[in-house]
């Protein structure tokens, strides 16, 4: 909708994939917060043809989204072990059996 009109400024998809924001590389570590951004009122992309200030501001706020994505429990394990999540889930597991033995 309104996002499509401003095609001469970076699209949402481009922004989210870039590790840089205004020349500052965003940290991939979610423990470390990203550098402080400017006040919301100044967050207008210069030169953008904004027919309506609201969509532009909404797009700018995309910059504030964390550049690392929250990882699911399964994907985190996949990264750590290089195994398929379902089998990996088992890899943290012991099967316990109670039974009789004569020794």
């Amino acid at each position: 909708m309104s996002e499509d009109r401003g095609s001469d400024y970076p699209q949402v998809s481009y922004i989210r994939k870039s590790p840089f924001f205004r020349g500052v590389k965003q940290t991939p570590n979610p423990e470390t917060p990203p550098p402080p951004t400017e006040a919301m009122a100044n967050m207008v992309v210069h030169g953008a043809r904004t027919y309506d200030p609201l969509p532009a501001r909404r797009i700018v706020t995309v910059h504030e989204a964390p550049l690392t994505y929250p990882m699911t429990y399964a994907s985190r394990r996949t990264v750590g072990h290089g195994a398929r999540p379902d089998y990996d889930r088992g890899s943290w597991t012991k099967i316990m059996i109670i039974h009789s033995a004569v020794v």
Binding site: M96, I97, I98, S100, A101, V102
Partner: peptide, 8 residues
């Protein structure tokens, strides 16, 4: 005779 819990 034992009652045993074994893990796999």
């Amino acid at each position: 005779n034992k009652a045993r819990s074994d893990y796999f």
